[in-house]
Write a protein that binds this DNA or RNA. Structure first.
Length: 581
RNA sequence: GCGGCCGUGGUCUAGUCCGGUCUAGGAUAAAAGCUUCCCAAGCUUUGGAUCCCGGGUUCGAAUCCCGGCGGCCGCACCA
C-alpha cells in the first residue's frame, strides 16, 4: 500500500508539457528569465544546451530557406530599435493595438469592437473607428457589460509595441520591432540595386523581436521577446511564376482551405503542391513553394506529417493588405494545434506605404519585351497666329491649351469657338496631328510572399516531439541535425588504461569539430541515461576489447543497439552519420 | 486584467488546517572517492532552502492576516 511513496519525480502525474519543462530546467535548456528576482512572464533565459539547440534550429532554417536558394534569397541584419516613422508607415503605431473597454463594476475587460457588434449588430467600418467614436457608439446603443450588465468605462487603446527613446531627447520616440519584416522593406530598394536589380529577390532575417503582450501564458510558446525567422520575398506580380517549383511539385501539403474553414471543418485535405496550385487553393506559386519547404523543415524538427497542417485565414480574419494567409499549425500534447509559422501574401502593401511615408521611389522598372508603340493625338497651337492676335496674353493661353486633353479640344473646336481662360479661340488657331510614341517599360511595386517562423516555439516543438520515456528513463530523440551534443564518449571502467584511451579518442573527435561530452563518472548505465536525456544521438564506449583490437562500441540513443567499429574508421563513420561533407 | 488553485535545496515533495518539538525531514539530481567487462546497481563523503517577496499579528510565523510578484486553469485578449 505504500508503493507510491518515494517514487522518483518523473513518475508523478505530469503531462508531457510539464515533463519537457521540467527536463529543460534540470538539464539547462531554458527557464523563466530573471528567475532569482521572481521571474517575469513572457521572457525566457536559454542555458547551454538550449542555446545550442536553438542555434542548430536557426542554422537548419538558414540552410533550408536561405542558402538552398542562394542567388535569390539573402540574409540581412537590421536593428531591433527602429524609429517611430517606420512603424507609422507600416501601420503598427495605429493598428498594432487592441481597443479595450473595462466594466466599471466587475472590471472585466472586453474588446470594444467585439462587444459592440455583439450587442448593437454590425457597424460599418468599425475597425477604423477611434476610441472616442467607439465610446459614442457604446453610449447611443446602450452597450453594457456582458457579464454583469454594469456600465462600461472609456474605450482605450493598448498598443503592443515596446516604446523607447533614442538618445536624451524624449521626443525622439522609437519602438522595438514587433517583426523583422520592416527592416527588409525599408532596405528593399538599396539591396535590389546592390544585387544588380534582379527579381525575384528574397530578404531574410533571424533576430529578436518584442511584443508587449497583455497576458502571456504557455511558457515558451508566447513570449514578449522572441526570435523570429522571416523571409520577405519580392516578386513581379505580372511574372509570378516560381522558378524552383519543380523541386517541390510532388510534395504533399495538408491544407485546411478557406472553404473548409468557412464550413467549420477541422480535417485537412492532403494535396500535392501541383494540385494546390492548379486548383487555385494557393494563390501564389512562391507562397506554395515556401509552404512546401516549411513542411519539410517542420518534419525535420521531428513533427510527424499528420500532426501538421496549414489553415487558411478567412478574408475577415486576415489583415486588409493580405490577399491570402495560411498558418502552419502543429499539434502539441497539452496545447493542441499551435501556430509555428505564418505564410502571408502581403501584396504591395508594405512597399507602397513606405513609398508614401518616406517620399522615396520604392518601385522597380519592368522593361517590355518590345517597346509599346502608340499613336497619340497632339494639339499644336498656331503660336504665330495667337501671338499676333493676343500679344502679351500668348503665354497664358498656350499654357491653358496645353492643360486640355487633345481629343476633347479637337471635338470642341469642331463645334465652333472655345473660350479658354477668358479668351476666345477660333478653330483655325489650333492644328492637330497624330504622333507615334514608344514606351519601353513601366514602373511597379513588387508583391511580397512572407513565410515567418518563431524560433523559440520551434525549440519547444523539437523538444516535445523528441521527448520519450523508456521504462523509467527519459530519452530525448532529437534529430541528429539539431541535437546540441552529438556524441558522448565513455570509458567502460576507469582502470587498466581504458580511461586514457577513451580520452585520446574523445580528443580526436573534438578536433574533428564535433560537439562531444566525456563522462567517466558513476556506472556505465548511469552515463548512458544521462546522455540519452540530453539527446546525444550516439555514445562511444571504450572497453577491454579496444585495448586489444582498437575497436570501440557505438551505441544508438533510440534503440540502444551497439555495434563495433574500428577506431581508425571513426572519423569517416561520424562524418557520414551526421551528414557532414 | 478578473476569478479559482498554487509557490518549501537543481527537481519532486513532507510539514501549513490545529503557530513553538522545524538551527525544516525525505527522495532524486549534482560533486569527490571506492567499486564496476555495457544500461539511473552498491558503499563512503560533500555541498545545497533565512520555506516566492514585502509588511502585519504574536513572547514566538513555513504555518495566521494584508499587499505584491510568479505559475497553472477558466474568462477575456492575442500573431
Amino acid at each position: 500500500m505504500y508503493l507510491y511513496l518515494n517514487l522518483p519525480h518523473w513518475c508523478t502525474d505530469m503531462d508531457k508539457y510539464d515533463k519537457v519543462i521540467d527536463l529543460c530546467k534540470r538539464r539547462g535548456f531554458f527557464w523563466p528569465a530573471s528567475e532569482i528576482y521572481g521571474g517575469v512572464a513572457g521572457f525566457l533565459d536559454f542555458g547551454p544546451l538550449g542555446t545550442m539547440l536553438k542555434r542548430n534550429i536557426e542554422r537548419r532554417w538558414r540552410e533550408t530557406f536561405i542558402h538552398k536558394n542562394h542567388g535569390i534569397v539573402y540574409e540581412i541584419e537590421t536593428p531591433v530599435i527602429t524609429p517611430s516613422k517606420v512603424f507609422e508607415a507600416s501601420g503598427h503605431v495605429e493598428n498594432f493595438t487592441d481597443v479595450i473597454v473595462e466594466c466599471t463594476s466587475c472590471h472585466k475587460k472586453f474588446r470594444a469592437d467585439h462587444i459592440i457588434i455583439e450587442q448593437a449588430g454590425e457597424v460599418p467600418g468599425i475597425e477604423g473607428k477611434t476610441a472616442a467614436q467607439l465610446d459614442e457608439i457604446i453610449s447611443t446603443n446602450h452597450v453594457v457589460c456582458t457579464e454583469c450588465g454594469g456600465a462600461l468605462g472609456k474605450v482605450s487603446n493598448f498598443n503592443l509595441l515596446f516604446k523607447t527613446n533614442i538618445g536624451p531627447y524624449s521626443e525622439n520616440v522609437a519602438y522595438l520591432r514587433p517583426e523583422a519584416a520592416q527592416g527588409m522593406f525599408t532596405n528593399f530598394k538599396s539591396i535590389y540595386t546592390a544585387m544588380r536589380e534582379r527579381l525575384p529577390l528574397g530578404l531574410a532575417q533571424i533576430g529578436k523581436v518584442a511584443r508587449n503582450e497583455i497576458s502571456p501564458r504557455q511558457g515558451p510558446l508566447r513570449l514578449r521577446e522572441f526570435t523570429i525567422m522571416e523571409v520577405e520575398f519580392f516578386f513581379d506580380p505580372k511574372n509570378p511564376t516560381c522558378t524552383l517549383l519543380e523541386q517541390v511539385y510532388d510534395k504533399e501539403l495538408r491544407l485546411l482551405t478557406e472553404d473548409l474553414v468557412a464550413a467549420e471543418k477541422t480535417d485537412p485535405i492532403e494535396v500535392t503542391v501541383r494540385e494546390a496550385l492548379s486548383e487555385r487553393l494557393i494563390k501564389s506559386d512562391w507562397l506554395a513553394y515556401f509552404m512546401a519547404l516549411s513542411t519539410d523543415f517542420i518534419s525535420e524538427l521531428g513533427a510527424p506529417h499528420n500532426s501538421q497542417m496549414f489553415v487558411g485565414k478567412l478574408a475577415k480574419e486576415r489583415a486588409h493588405y493580405s490577399a491570402q494567409t495560411f498558418d502552419q499549425l502543429v499539434k502539441l500534447d497539452r496545447w493542441g494545434w499551435v501556430e509555428v509559422s505564418g505564410h502571408a501574401y502581403r501584396t504591395d502593401y508594405d512597399l507602397s506605404r513606405h513609398q508614401q511615408y518616406s517620399g522615396q521611389d520604392l518601385g522597380v522598372f519592368r522593361k517590355y519585351d518590345v517597346p509599346k508603340k502608340t499613336r497619340v493625338l497632339v494639339a499644336k497651337p498656331r503660336v504665330d497666329l495667337i501671338s499676333r492676335e493676343y500679344q502679351s496674353e500668348t503665354g497664358k493661353i498656350l499654357a491653358a491649351l496645353k492643360s486640355i486633353d487633345a481629343a476633347s479640344l479637337r471635338s470642341k473646336l469642331a463645334a465652333g469657338n472655345v473660350v479658354v481662360d477668358g479668351s476666345t479661340i477660333r478653330p483655325e488657331l489650333v492644328e492637330f496631328m497624330e504622333k507615334e510614341e514608344s514606351v519601353t517599360g513601366e514602373r511597379f511595386i513588387p508583391h511580397v510572399a512572407e513565410p515567418s517562423f518563431g524560433a523559440d516555439r520551434l525549440t519547444y516543438l523539437a523538444l516535445e516531439c523528441a521527448y520519450n520515456e523508456k521504462g523509467d528513463r527519459t530519452i530525448l530523440s532529437l534529430p541528429r541535425s539539431i541535437a546540441p551534443v552529438k556524441i558522448c564518449v565513455f570509458p567502460l571502467v576507469n582502470k587498466d588504461g581504458i580511461n586514457e584511451k577513451a580520452q585520446a579518442i574523445f580528443d580526436a573527435i573534438r578536433s574533428d569539430g564535433f560537439i562531444a561530452d566525456f563522462d567517466d563518472g558513476g556506472s556505465i548505465g548511469r552515463r548512458y541515461a544521462r546522455s540519452d536525456e540530453i539527446g546525444a544521438p550516439i555514445a562511444i564506449t571504450v572497453d577491454y576489447q579496444t585495448m586489444n583490437d582498437d575497436t570501440v562500441t557505438i551505441r544508438d540513443r533510440d534503440n540502444w543497439a551497439q555495434s563495433r567499429i574500428s577506431a581508425r574508421d571513426l572519423r569517416s563513420y561520424l562524418k557520414e552519420y551526421f551528414c557532414i561533407r
